[in-house]
Amino acid sequence: MRLPPFAYDRPRDLYEALELLNSYGKDCKVLAGGTDLLVRMKQGLVAPTHLVSLKALSELAEIKETGDGLQIGAAVKLSDILAYQPVQDHWPGLFEAVKAIGAPSIQHFSGTIGGNLCQDNRCQFYDQSKFFRAARQTCNKAGGSTCFAWKGGSDKCHSACQSDSAPILIAMDAKVVIKSKNETRTMPLEELYSSVGERPLTLADNEMLTEILVPAPTPGAGTAFEKLAYRSSIDYAMVSAGAFVQTEGGRTTRVRLVIGAVARGPLSIATVEKTLKNRPAGDQQAINEVAIDAMNTAAAFIANNMTQPVEYRTKMVSVIAKRALTRAAERAISQKGFLEAK
């Protein structure tokens, strides 16, 4: 399988990169690790005329802990996040999520966190070769006007956001720094996602994700990530969940739950805070309630966009949500990092 032709640039600094994005506009794509983008290009899903490589941008390849928390450059490799001791110690949920992405030799040493967050949505009818797609009408995402993943069809695209790192980062209130030639904006990570299947990111064509900012760990907080897949490796999630639990004196004071792989963007469960606040951390009855909420919320979104049945994935939302919340609560109380907890 060959790649279609394109021009390649390897800017030496961020400024040059943003200049290039600005001048090429929508015909251009950022090339990070390429483990998502190049597959899509081989399948003929995108055909950028220009690729702008992040390879030489050392300013985007740095991960460091500051007083405010964790600062992760968009081009930091997944393996560098896993190897970074503070992540292992204080952000076990992030560690779990990054570790769960694909498999080491597929993308851990070349794939980046920015690429993981900015990967396009997926659908079993869309993420296929030209040959496969040619047998059907063009779907919404490919520029047509139908959706095969939604029962009875739909005028919207029902692809799913498959980023494994997004749910946990959103649960931890991470922010992202977005830059263009003329502007820098910082916003909560969840605002990166548009919930529009056809164009799932809110980035403009000349913009680039440059940094992810994760708040500093607070005493009494715990995080966890859960992923359900048929196989223990390679697979995209059928359902995933990122959970953050803040406790004080054994009671939950703040909590977030974000479900991944089921909707067009990471799905924040709104009721979780109301139900769990001031309850004893890890209270199974309360967590069960939230898990049911999560399942019901997700049910409105889950489409037949993976080969696994919709009903099964829907039901599993409750199980995966519950497990993530329970483990996050355990960690909040025990205050153990990923490696210690093992």
């Binding site: 199974q284 009855q285 069960n288 309630e289 898990a291 049911i292 399942m295 039901k315 599993m316 939302v317 409750s318 199980v319 519950k322």
Partner: peptide, 8 residues
């Protein structure tokens, strides 16, 4: 299914 709403 998942979590039973009544028995929790």
């Amino acid at each position: 299914c998942g979590i039973d709403a009544f028995t929790q």
